[in-house]
Design a binder for these strands. Structure first.
Length: 581
RNA sequence: GGUCCCGUAGCUCAAUUGGAUAGAGCAUCUGCCUUCUAAGCAGAGGGUUGCAGGUUCGAGUCCUGCCGGGAUCGCCA
């Protein structure tokens, strides 16, 4: 139980004793620290329901909880706010025993937050869905779900046909086939070659109908598992996965499932047959579609296209088949799509289609967790200075080298080897990149400014790492000097440490909030707040030189607990923290 | 034209889902390094929450109508 939950219980009981709903007793942290540590606002809605004066109800509640041993002071303010201060003993207990919420008994949740196409370099567009999705996966896993991240790559479309035909036409199949997957350099060379070829092949096919025809034919042969297409495709896929693993790895973004559209190819025909037989799919303009209109739609709603009029399938079809596969293999209670907000219509169609056709039971929750577009400082979709699409690997490299520059300027990590410093620079750069992104609300568009992000001052990833490293350094010094850290019995919280102590207890409720709305940014807010409050404490209270043994050992304990909490959140955000810098 | 999203300090973003005096960072200004890492700390200035109504004890948040920006609207993904 969290401190908020226990307080809510106390006040919930009080409301219940007045024949009012328990929920009115819900307590929250106060946004007015000088007036209260916690507050309960239930008296006002209660007054509305009961037709009474809110202050009278508040008064009754206060009288009911007046002598509770955990509460130091309870008072009424304004129209009926109940302001709460807790006792030191109560706070001390919770500071030392922060339990993360248990929101599931191991239900399976599938998160879909990848989507890169094979044979194409990853670009900045993959950054946001990747890190938000990965963080949500970590959060859900932490609170008791069995969370599975699926990369769901695009590996089965006409773009494969175009690329393969290009190799065949230039008699360069061997470049693909002879590549040794164990040789990192060879893999990189082939990947670069594909990255260069694909846009050319694609452009040529768009202009020349004959080439397009060839590419389509090759794609069909691939889908029929014919050689040499199948082997070639497998090689291209393997090499691409290596590249994805590298990029995602640098960002600490992990997946449990490396599946792609190809994995569900064989499920499509039987699924479509069933849909036709049962009448869920109908013919329209030569295409097979699933109508998904509803009576309360204000405007006619476009159907999901199952088969195009030329017999080909669309991404809605593969997405449906993917849902079929996921239900068959993993029996999830939720599927969450962390994808670009601009696809909201597509997913609404998809969800309606699988519901009306009874592919998905009512008790399975399908969620479209759309993410906003990443724009440049001009407010338009993010581009490089030259106007092109920025590769993800280039962006990570820029963040790293900027971090290295700043480390040198600030005279940090100067006593280390160059290799160590490089590693720290990567950790700092990635922290900057991820935190800059994760702290924004998920669904809104946001402006991505590399210069601002790599400034490393204020509300940034590097600030967080800096605070954590400072604590580590302090604790090392304390250990060297043989100083004691307070144990449970001797630990006490003093006035100037109270704000920090209160924050240390707040993580469970923040986590619950992040899960409820799938919004990791509340965690960023929390961790920054904690780091800043610690920094203020650190500036105001000297620790190692404190002469009062009890005060010193208790402060060391607070340092320990703060570090623990910071590292817990870093883990959830997929941010690595160095030992020293 | 329909639908969806957005509009909060000079800039970039928050605001615990309807709560008290709308908070942070950057930028600007003032202090603080012979004591634990100054990527820091303490403080100041900066707001008609796009506009106009409505709902109620109470609105940045909900409703209606405007204005402005973006996305999207069947055979691409």
């Amino acid at each position: 139980m969290s401190i908020i939950e226990e307080l809510s219980d106390i006040f919930g009981e009080a409301f219940k004793s007045l024949d009012l709903p328990r929920e009115l007793g819900n307590v929250r942290t106060s946004d007015r620290p000088e007036m209260a540590e916690f507050q309960c606002n239930g008296a006002m809605p209660a007054a509305k329901q009961a037709g009474k004066n809110p202050r009278e109800i508040a008064q009754a509640i206060v009288e009911h909880v007046q002598d509770h041993p955990n509460l130091k002071d309870v008072s009424i303010a304004g129209p009926g706010f109940i302001n709460i201060f807790v006792t030191n003993e109560f706070l001390t207990k919770y500071v030392q025993d922060v339990q993360l919420p248990k929101l599931s008994e191991g239900e399976t949740v599938i998160l879909d937050y990848g989507g890169p196409n094979i044979a194409k370099p990853m670009h900045v567009g993959h950054l946001r869905t990747g890190i938000i999705g990965d963080t949500l996966r970590r959060i859900l896993d932490k609170v008791g779900f069995h969370a599975l991240g699926d990369v769901h790559m695009g590996d089965w479309g006409t773009h494969m046909g175009m690329l393969m035909m290009d190799y065949i036409r230039t008699s360069d199949e061997s470049i693909v086939m002879d590549c040794n997957l164990e040789d990192a350099d060879a893999v990189q060379t082939l990947f670069d070659d594909m990255a260069e070829r694909y846009p050319k092949a694609s452009g040529a096919a768009k202009e020349n109908p004959e080439l397009m025809q060839e590419a389509r034919a090759a794609t069909v042969k691939l889908q029929n598992k014919e050689e040499p297409f199948l082997s070639m495709w497998q090689k291209i896929r393997d090499v691409s996965i290596r590249a994805m693993e590298r990029n995602y790895g640098l960002l600490n973004v992990r997946f449990d499932l490396w599946k792609g559209e190809a994995d569900v190819h064989d499920l499509i025909a039987p699924m479509a047959e069933r849909l036709k037989q049962k009448g869920f799919a109908v013919q329209d303009d030569g295409a097979w579609v699933i109508p998904v209109e509803r009576n309360d739609d204000k405007k006619k709603y476009p159907p999901l296209i199952l088969y195009k009029s030329d017999g080909g399938v669309m991404y809605g079809t593969t997405d449906m088949a993917t849902i079929v596969e996921r239900i068959n293999l993993y029996d999830p209670s939720r599927i969450i799509y962390i994808v670009d907000q601009r696809q909201s219509l597509h997913f609404e169609q998809l969800f309606r289609a699988v519901r009306v056709s009874n592919i998905v039971r009512d008790d399975i929750e399908l969620t479209f967790a759309g993410v906003g577009t990443m724009n440049g400082t001009d407010g338009k979709p993010f581009k490089t200075r030259a106007g092109g699409v920025m590769r993800l690997s280039d962006m990570i490299e820029m963040a790293q080298s900027k971090a290295l520059e700043r480390l040198n300027e600030a005279h940090l990590a100067q006593d280390m080897s160059e290799e160590e410093r490089e590693k720290i620079a990567l950790q700092v750069g990635v922290a900057a990149l991820k935190f800059a992104d994760l702290q924004n609300q998920r669904h809104a568009d946001y402006i991505f400014d590399l210069d601002r992000m790599t400034n490393f001052e204020g509300k940034t990833g590097p600030y967080l790492l800096y605070q954590a490293v400072r604590i580590k350094s302090l604790l090392r010094k304390a250990a060297e000097q043989g100083l004691n850290i307070a144990d449970d019995a001797s630990f006490s919280i003093h006035e100037e440490e109270r704000a920090l102590a209160l924050l240390l207890t707040a993580l469970p409720d923040v986590l619950t909030l992040a899960v409820r709305n799938y919004t990791p940014h509340v965690l960023c807010d929390y961790v920054y707040n904690l780091a800043q409050t610690f920094s203020s404490f650190y500036g105001n209270c000297h620790i190692l030189s404190e002469e009062n043994e009890n005060v010193r050992s208790s402060r060391l304990k607070l340092c320990n607990l703060t570090l623990e909490r910071l590292e817990q959140v870093f883990e959830l955000l997929g941010i690595e923290c160095p030992e020293r810098m």
